[in-house]
Amino acid sequence: MTGFHLAADKRTTLEEAVAHVQDGATVALGGGLAARLPMALVRALVRQGTTGLRVVGSAHSIDVDLLVGAGAVAVCEESYVGFEQDLGLAPAFRRGAESGSLVVRESSCVTMLTQLRAAEMGVPFLPVRGLLGTDLPTLHPEWGTVTCPFTGQVLAAVPALAPDVALLHAPIGDAAGNLHLDQPYVLDERFAHASRVVVASVDRLVDTAEVVAAGVTVPAHVVTAVVEAPFGAHPTSCYPGYAYDRPHLAEYVKAAAAGGDAFEAYLDRYVRVDEQTYRDLTGAERLTAWSASDEQWQELFR
């Protein structure tokens, strides 16, 4: 971990923001499952042509799958990648794992949390409950065991993990990078403090006073760059703004499952375009209707 980031104005463009991500970097992706994933940044990473990434996190979906499908990822180290019962297994992630083109070092939520905490605390490792007797350690030669000097208990031990770059998305933030998130924060706070560089996109750039009134979840001094990207988590949700885009996710999963030309066509249509074009094509605006009534909210999931 390096020091804090003290610039008063960290606003930048998506292209400059993702230039912080070098080929081969360890990248932490914020959000979880199909909520608040940093998708505008992910799309920009694909446009940048980044390769060889090691992506780390807890439970993820289209962010990791899209990066894998686009050839950006060498190693996946999440606790889950998929679309739950709704849309099933992650097609590109699966294909990569099953063909051997992608190395999956599956992790688990508490393990990832513990490794980030070790980095935050400046210690080389921490003990963690569980793992022993499972097969996850077979995927992680870097994990070990430690004997408690006080009780003699043997526990799994995992090394500190300081991602090179964390990519986070927040509903609002200010020019200095103060971010407000709605719960659940998942691992975003831990990523923000453990990573060397934190790049954030926000649906709306607002005055500091508005972020303070909403509550600062991630403080400016750990944030390196901030970029305004309306609907920047789409097609995943970012409440209170917008819900999950079920039809778009289904369209993505279909294209990713088909692979080849169908996946390339998805990239051409939705990724290799600017974000305004993306928003217009996807009709992301309709997802704000969730708040009108419970009936309209449910309709978005039918």
């Binding site: 889950y80 990648v81 998929g82 099953e98 599956e106 688990s108 939520c109 393990t111 409950r129 499972t134």
Partner: peptide, 10 residues
């Protein structure tokens, strides 16, 4: 390749 176990291993 299934999705993965979340926090279950712990």
């Amino acid at each position: 390749k299934l999705g993965g176990g979340g926090g279950g291993a712990n």
